[in-house]
Design a binder for these strands. Structure first.
Lengths: 336, 336
DNA sequence: TTGTAGGCGTTATCAA
DNA sequence: TTGATAACGCCTACAA
């Protein structure tokens, strides 16, 4: 495995010069440059990134900590971030937290140990790892949160404007005449401080249609929980006339429960969901969804990260608007 | 940032001893051990993985190179691998190749530079990077291929038994009476040596129903190509009576094209697909699919990788059977 | 424009 | 059971 020293020796120059042929070729005399390039070719030299990482205090990698890589939103985000990092010669160190603080901490330790240049993370709920993250930041790791952000969190963030999206979705339902609307999942200030659920509750209340207490339950963002909760909702005496799924995976669970109950969309019940997943356009009628600008997120994130990981920092606290796509899964409330 | 030397100093021992308290605590006297542990606590010591990586020649990370992280099969595979690596204190360095050799090479260079301990990869088509991969292997990186494998590839592999799956799928269709079956995508020995397409062609031929030349076209594994190709197929005079989608994303494109053409499944055309994605159970009728044992793949892969990345190697060339799930998207061939 | 030298934190080897 | 020492390959002052 050739090192820069071998290259230098073969080219008859010092290692410093040899390295410059790669990093600042314009600072070398043409003939020197050529000699070094020749030697690099000869020896098939490729830099050892681990040595650079040790010396520099950080590796050429960005940590991406998502909640669940199987959730299409995160998979797409990972791709958008990944391709852009690749274009800047950075790698992607991927980890997940399954929305759990302890798993998150384990992964943070690893990422910190690997000296990631920056960290893009979807925080788990609760302030559990705040202290650790602050330590990482003090040591120079640039940290930015995505998708979720604790109200008092000291980090940069970039995420969907959850409030605008919830309001947009509700106005869509209100116009159709719905008032008995259930959100799939309930806000809890500490345990589960989910923004979409939070705004849902608040905006419904402010609009004069507080969410029925029978509709309020804390569930996880997964298909099974959404399925079971929907079944429960459909069996209520005061059955909701519309369901609002707070992410794509929940929508699958809800849809399945509605089908199994033998109910029709939108005649018996309306369904509105976050995330424009491919299947939502395939079923009949198509599902009304709120689409996130994932590409734009990836672009802004990578730009921000590259700009801020060394040198002075420009804070970023940004909310991006979502887009409502109407396909027919929401109609007027049923007579029941 | 405390180093092991700081710990050693505080504990009044040598760095060697201090490190042993972490790696081989049983080799220390209880009191020494305690002193060191105390010092570690005091200083909040966490090892610098980049230093270890430099010294050891590899980092505590496994490279995972998939074709496309948004394809649910790869996302699930990444999760299964990720959780298991985490349990062994390894990280996951993720990259993709978009099925393209040049992108793959770029990512391989990065992964090699980062000195990944092992590499799990879904190779792009063609032998383009063979030489580079062999060099990596010579330098000690354990490499195993997943999902696809060139016939003469010298690496270990673990993948679906594509042949068994194609045969199983075709037998399902044959029993229903289909002979005009089109696979979404065609095998090309060099350009696109796709196993599923290859076996599809061969098995159809051997069964006495060679695929019509009008059905043979090379397309990429993505929704748009599958959509367009399906549209083309549906407009043929000799329209196929059944479509076989070779992965989950293709199935989406095919389904969309069938819907837009105003055709009914399975009355007008049957659809069979690889990958048991959530949506295939939601549409009516549900899609008949071939499911891959992704969890088992993750388990075997991580086990193999951890066992083989240092020390002597046990070759692995394994095919796992898929499972046919029948839901109703395949019926008898239409009269047309 | 080019070169020298020291150290980043760990780990492997050898010695005590 | 413990310790001293020497790299691993690169990068950054600084010097020439």
């Amino acid at each position: 495995m050739a090192t820069i020293n071998d290259v230098a020796k073969l080219a008859g120059v010092s290692p410093t010069t040899a390295k410059r042929a790669i990093n600042e070729p314009h600072k070398l005399q043409p003939q020197t440059l050529e000699k070094v390039q020749w030697a690099i070719q000869q020896l098939d030299y490729e830099p050892d990134l681990t040595a650079g990482a040790l010396r520099r205090g950080r590796n050429l990698t960005v940590g991406l900590l998502v909640a669940d890589i199987v959730e299409p939103f995160f998979a797409e985000l990972a791709r958008e971030i990944g391709v852009r990092l690749r274009n800047s010669n950075y790698g992607l160190l991927l980890a997940d937290n399954e929305y759990q603080t302890e798993i998150e901490l384990h992964n943070l330790r690893h990422l910190a140990g690997q000296r990631v240049s920056a960290l893009i993370m979807r925080p788990s709920y609760g302030p559990g790892n705040r202290e650790y993250l602050l330590k990482m930041q003090d040591k120079g790791t640039y940290i930015i949160e995505v998708d979720h952000h604790m109200p008092d969190s000291p980090f940069d963030y970039l995420m969907l404007d959850h409030e605008q999206c919830i309001r947009m979705g509700l106005e869509h339902l209100w116009k159709l005449g719905h008032t008995r609307i259930a959100g799939l999942g309930t806000h809890h200030p500490e345990l589960y401080p989910e923004w979409r659920a939070h705004h849902f509750d608040r905006i419904m209340r402010e609009h004069g249609h507080p969410v029925l207490s029978a509709y309020r339950e804390i569930i996880r963002y997964n298909e099974q929980d959404a399925y079971e909760f929907t079944r429960y909702l459909l069996n209520l005496q005061e059955r909701p006339t519309a369901l609002f799924a707070f992410n794509g995976t929940e929508a699958i669970g809800a849809y399945r429960a509605i089908q199994e109950a033998g109910l029709s969309i939108p005649e018996d019940i309306s369904l509105l969901a976050f995330d424009n997943l491919p299947w939502t356009a395939l079923v009949k009628p198509g599902i009304d969804v709120i689409e996130q600008p994932i590409q734009q997120m990836g672009e802004l994130l990578v730009h921000q990260v590259l700009k801020n990981m060394d040198g002075p920092r420009t804070p970023l606290h940004k909310l991006l608007p979502g887009k409502l796509i109407v396909r027919g899964s929401c109609g007027g409330p049923s007579g029941k």
